[in-house]
Simulated scan of single mutants.
Amino acid sequence: MAHTADQPTTRRDFLYIATAAFGAVGAAAAVWPLIDQMNPDKSVLALSSTEVNISAVPPGQQIVVKWRGKPVFILHRTPEQIAAVEKEDWRNLRDPQPDAERVKRQQWLVIIGICTHLGCVPNRESDGSGWLCPCHGSVYDNSGRRTAGPAPLNMAVPPYKFESDTTVLIG
């Protein structure tokens, strides 16, 4: 019986290995464009973060900015609004979440302004108590938490950080 270790390496063995390696490199070169086309477009990557100057927003007012094609509400909360959301019993809400988990600085609330029921954009209540979705009546408080209506979840909090006292980086 012959063992493969006993046989000397031939030119044919080298050609098999070289052909297989060349074929593997060629297959990888052919597949790479198909994989690379799944990456986000450069225009999408450019919109992945938004820097917002919040220095001109007075207490009690909000601004709306676009981030990744979605409206983002930035609310400068008053001490009364902060006290009201902290006083509320959040444990009995449909999507229980304390205000402290939703904000990085108490006076600033940053949320994606889309109703979690059917994707509408809620309107700011005239008395400043929160938002009301005009389509089906979902109500959100000044922490973006759902307090009434058919919406299943609170409004989402996007990833953000404060670059300075007057600048927020969303994304």
Score class of each variant (00 low, 15 high):
residue 2 A to M: 13
residue 4 T to Y: 14
residue 4 T to S: 13
residue 4 T to F: 15
residue 5 A to T: 13
residue 7 Q to T: 04
residue 8 P to V: 11
residue 9 T to F: 11
residue 10 T to Y: 05
residue 10 T to W: 04
residue 10 T to E: 11
residue 12 R to Q: 12
residue 12 R to K: 14
residue 12 R to L: 10
residue 13 D to N: 11
residue 13 D to H: 14
residue 14 F to N: 08
residue 16 Y to A: 02
residue 17 I to V: 14
residue 17 I to T: 14
residue 18 A to T: 09
residue 18 A to C: 05
residue 21 A to F: 05
residue 21 A to I: 08
residue 22 F to K: 04
residue 24 A to L: 12
residue 24 A to S: 14
residue 24 A to T: 13
residue 24 A to H: 03
residue 25 V to R: 11
residue 27 A to K: 07
residue 28 A to N: 04
residue 29 A to H: 08
residue 30 A to Y: 13
residue 32 W to P: 09
residue 33 P to D: 10
residue 37 Q to D: 06
residue 38 M to N: 12
residue 39 N to I: 11
residue 39 N to K: 13
residue 40 P to C: 02
residue 40 P to M: 04
residue 43 S to M: 06
residue 44 V to S: 07
residue 45 L to G: 03
residue 46 A to L: 01
residue 46 A to F: 03
residue 50 T to V: 15
residue 50 T to E: 14
residue 50 T to K: 15
residue 51 E to K: 15
residue 52 V to C: 08
residue 52 V to I: 10
residue 53 N to Q: 08
residue 54 I to C: 04
residue 55 S to W: 02
residue 56 A to V: 07
residue 58 P to D: 07
residue 59 P to H: 05
residue 59 P to W: 10
residue 60 G to K: 04
residue 63 I to A: 02
residue 63 I to M: 03
residue 63 I to K: 00
residue 64 V to Y: 06
residue 64 V to N: 09
residue 65 V to R: 03
residue 68 R to F: 06
residue 69 G to Q: 02
residue 69 G to C: 02
residue 69 G to R: 01
residue 72 V to I: 15
residue 75 L to W: 05
residue 75 L to Q: 07
residue 77 R to W: 04
residue 77 R to L: 06
residue 78 T to E: 02
residue 79 P to V: 04
residue 83 A to G: 08
residue 83 A to Q: 09
residue 86 E to H: 11
residue 87 K to P: 02
residue 87 K to H: 12
residue 89 D to I: 00
residue 89 D to R: 05
residue 90 W to R: 01
residue 91 R to W: 00
residue 93 L to P: 00
residue 94 R to Q: 07
residue 95 D to G: 01
residue 96 P to H: 00
residue 97 Q to F: 00
residue 98 P to S: 01
residue 98 P to F: 00
residue 101 E to I: 00
residue 101 E to G: 00
residue 104 K to E: 08
residue 106 Q to E: 15
residue 106 Q to N: 10
residue 107 Q to E: 15
residue 107 Q to C: 05
residue 108 W to H: 06
residue 108 W to G: 06
residue 111 I to P: 01
residue 112 I to N: 04
residue 113 G to M: 12
residue 114 I to C: 04
residue 116 T to N: 00
residue 116 T to Y: 01
residue 117 H to I: 07
residue 121 V to I: 13
residue 122 P to N: 01
residue 122 P to G: 10
residue 122 P to R: 07
residue 123 N to T: 15
residue 124 R to S: 14
residue 127 D to M: 03
residue 127 D to E: 05
residue 128 G to H: 07
residue 128 G to Y: 09
residue 128 G to D: 07
residue 128 G to P: 02
residue 131 W to S: 15
residue 132 L to T: 10
residue 135 C to S: 02
residue 135 C to F: 05
residue 138 S to V: 08
residue 138 S to C: 12
residue 138 S to F: 10
residue 141 D to S: 09
residue 142 N to D: 07
residue 144 G to P: 08
residue 144 G to R: 09
residue 150 P to H: 05
residue 151 A to N: 12
residue 152 P to I: 03
residue 153 L to T: 04
residue 154 N to S: 15
residue 155 M to Q: 11
residue 157 V to K: 05
residue 157 V to C: 01
residue 158 P to S: 07
residue 159 P to W: 05
residue 160 Y to A: 11
residue 160 Y to Q: 09
residue 161 K to F: 13
residue 162 F to R: 06
residue 162 F to I: 12
residue 165 D to I: 08
residue 165 D to L: 12
residue 165 D to H: 09
residue 166 T to N: 14
residue 167 T to L: 12
residue 168 V to W: 01
residue 171 G to F: 03
